[in-house]
Simulated assay, not measured.
Amino acid sequence: MAHAASARPAAGTPGGSLRRQRPRYGEAIIKGVLLAAALVSVATTVGIVISLLPPTLRFFERVGVWEFLTGTEWSALFDPPSYGVLPLVGATLLITVIAIAVAVPLGLAAAIYLSEYAHPRTRKVFKPVLEVLAGIPTVVYGFFALAAITPLLQDHWPWGEGPEVFNALSAGLVMGVMIIPTVASLSEDAMTAVPQSLRQGAYALGSTRRIVAIRVVLPAALSGIVAAVVLAISRAVGETMIVAIASGNRANLTWDPLQGMQTMTGYIAQAGEGDLPIGSFDYTTIFAVGGLLFLLTFIMNAVSIRLVRRFREVYE
Rank of each mutant, 00 (worst) to 15 (best):
H3L: 13
A5I: 06
S6Y: 10
G15I: 05
G16Q: 03
G16A: 04
S17T: 11
P23V: 01
Y25W: 06
G26W: 08
A28M: 13
G32D: 15
G32C: 02
V33W: 13
L34S: 05
L35E: 11
L35H: 11
S41G: 05
S41V: 00
T44P: 10
T44M: 14
T44Q: 12
T45H: 08
G47Y: 09
I50T: 12
L52P: 15
P54Q: 10
P55W: 04
P55I: 00
P55L: 09
L57K: 04
L57W: 09
R58E: 15
R58K: 05
R58Y: 02
R58L: 02
F59M: 07
F59L: 03
G64C: 07
V65F: 10
W66F: 01
W66R: 01
F68V: 00
F68W: 00
L69T: 01
G71Q: 00
T72G: 08
E73P: 05
E73M: 01
E73Q: 08
W74Y: 07
A76F: 02
A76S: 15
D79N: 15
P80T: 00
P81C: 02
P81D: 11
Y83P: 10
L86P: 06
L88R: 04
L88F: 08
A91Q: 03
A91H: 10
T92W: 02
L93V: 12
T96M: 14
V97I: 15
V97E: 15
I98F: 03
I98S: 08
V102H: 12
V104M: 06
P105I: 07
G107Q: 14
A109I: 05
A110R: 00
A110P: 08
A110K: 04
A111R: 03
A111P: 10
L114H: 04
L114T: 03
S115F: 07
S115G: 04
Y117K: 12
A118R: 10
H119P: 15
P120G: 03
P120F: 00
R121I: 07
R123C: 09
K124A: 04
K124C: 10
K127I: 04
P128T: 01
V129W: 13
L130A: 05
L130R: 06
E131H: 06
E131V: 00
V132N: 08
A134G: 05
G135D: 09
P137C: 11
